[in-house]
Nucleic acid binder design. Structure first.
Lengths: 228, 228
DNA sequence: CGTACCATTGACGACGGTCAAAAAACGTGG
DNA sequence: CCACGTTTTTTGACCGTCGTCAATGGTACG
């Protein structure tokens, strides 16, 4: 098969435990790719790579959260996307990364040396095709991002909340790993509008906000209707 | 090298003349990939592939213009991008195309059968890596599209005009192959706003509009300043 | 020459941005 | 544990950009 199965739940490079503790889950699909990587911890707001850095590595997030973003001279910022546990990132590049990547909270990350990966890809065609599939996943993300931006503020926020809930495999409530500023720069809104929209959704009974970072889903139907 | 050179001007699959006339340009880089394709003409507004079609082919545009777009139930539409002569499209897909592709004006297109391409990719690693590079180019397009959408209406229009001029290798004036509706749905504006912005740019001396489809650049600096 | 279609222009309103201030959350050190 | 300062979030008032609705004008094609 030349095309990626690309089901919503699977993530490339199966779960990897390199910190000594044996994985409690059944060991499935241990990937040769992740054996050439090492685990590194990044503190809050630490840059993982810059937006013009040559792409020496590919990254897999073990725990925490990561944002990709582009900084502009005037201080404005565009957040390209959020990556959660088990997500692979750092593939959105040509000769240089399109965006920077930064740890949102403290993050543990497997760093895979790209030369090793590439020489593997040059020998093994299926590895090259998997890299293609991973890039295609990034393409889909960017694509969905464009579609998100054609919506209204409440629709964008609802859409993000539901997408995050799916990514986290949570159903009733989620803890937002990122501050309002990141959400605003991702949705292309201001923090004020994001905050107001959260309040409106709460007032409308769609969600509840016991803390600014915690979102309880009260009326999921309403959110899904907004999502469109 | 594993990464695409990705210079702004080069397009994958070197120029291809399959209609019998000998190419007047020097024959460089004749690509085995395009030998497994055939030329087809598409009339104005004809769909080339649908947004859920399985991706049987890859396409290279010989002449005319093509838009990729996604149609919604409520009649709204998102235009993903415009493709001009020598551009390759139809690679933005997983198991199915993310968007539909439609001829804007009459278009002549080389259709490359994907199974032949894929079996080639499975045998030849460099072909697989080139497919990756092409997908990465699409990723960059989607990326730039997101960045475009964070700008104001005049900035979006100016940005599109300059980008089109670059794609066409024109310097002083361009003929827009697409109607206002397509521009609006690409920039996520209304046709009224697009029209007003054109008028404003003309009033401000940045451009001249001898006809609705023709744009003469009067003050390129002003446009580039808007582009940011 | 007439008939669609497409583009332009105007008046008005709404959504979201800006500016400003208050309130809450967080971290640090006493 | 509490006091303090900093950062983040919320809320309010106001304004500007762009969308909506409507009408006119222009262009292409039969």
């Amino acid at each position: 098969m030349w095309h990626s199965a690309s089901s919503s739940r699977d993530r490339e490079f199966a779960a990897c435990e390199t910190d000594g503790r044996a994985s409690s889950a059944a060991v499935v699909d241990r990937d040769p790719l992740e054996c050439i990587g090492s685990v590194v911890a990044f503190p809050r707001n630490r840059e993982i790579y810059g937006q013009n850095d040559p792409p020496f590595h590919v990254y897999k997030l073990i725990s925490g959260a990561v944002r990709t973003c582009k900084h502009f001279a005037d201080g404005r910022r565009q957040v390209g996307g959020f990556y959660l546990a088990n997500d692979v990132f750092g593939l959105e590049m040509g000769a240089a990364h399109l965006m920077a990547a930064e740890a949102i909270g403290n993050a543990r990350i497997v760093i895979i040396r790209r030369p090793a990966l590439m020489s593997l890809a040059e020998r093994e065609t299926d590895v090259a095709l998997r890299l293609w599939a991973l890039t295609m996943r990034e393409l889909r993300r960017a694509h969905d991002h464009v579609l998100l931006l054609m919506k209204s503020a409440p629709e964008r926020v609802a859409s993000l909340l539901l997408t995050l809930a799916e990514q986290m495999d949570k159903d009733g409530a989620i803890d937002l790993p990122m501050p309002r500023r990141d959400i605003a720069d991702y949705l292309e809104l201001t923090i004020e509008t994001v905050s107001r929209t959260f309040s409106d959704l709460q007032a409308g009974g769609a969600i509840e906000l016991p803390a600014s970072h915690r979102v309880v889903f009260r009326d999921r139907r309403a959110l899904e209707k907004l999502r469109g």
